[in-house]
């Protein structure tokens, strides 16, 4: 089995209230080295058979049409992770 990772992020120009809240908490803890935090999502999709171009194309379609909403988010990464034997 193979795992395909899909990562999405809120669009860069949009306010990310979750990231802002975490950045605020880090600042309160005294960590002054972090300038900002943004929070996105990571999906792990497990594929039974081999991952060929058709499977990858399907994942890309799902990533762009269902896993993300292009009005508010970008798909920032699709990676294939081979299963450890």
């Amino acid at each position: 089995m193979t795992t395909i990772i899909v990562e999405t992020m809120p669009k860069a120009e949009l306010l990310d209230p979750q990231g802002k809240a975490v950045a605020g908490a880090l600042a309160r803890l005294g960590t002054s080295t972090f300038a900002s935090v943004r929070i996105g999502k990571r999906f792990e999709i497990v594929v039974d058979g081999p991952v060929d171009d058709a499977v990858l194309a399907e994942v890309r379609t799902v990533a762009e049409e269902i896993l993300s909403n292009s009005v508010i988010e970008d798909v920032v990464g699709i990676h294939v992770v081979e299963a450890a034997v």
């Binding site: 306010l15 209230p17 979750q18 802002k20 909403n69 009005v71 508010i72």
Partner: peptide, 17 residues
């Protein structure tokens, strides 16, 4: 309705969190 593309734009978390 926005997710179904019947209306434009999107809704995100309130700016004040």
């Amino acid at each position: 309705l926005t997710e179904a593309h019947l209306l434009e734009g999107g809704l995100i978390r309130n700016d004040h969190g």
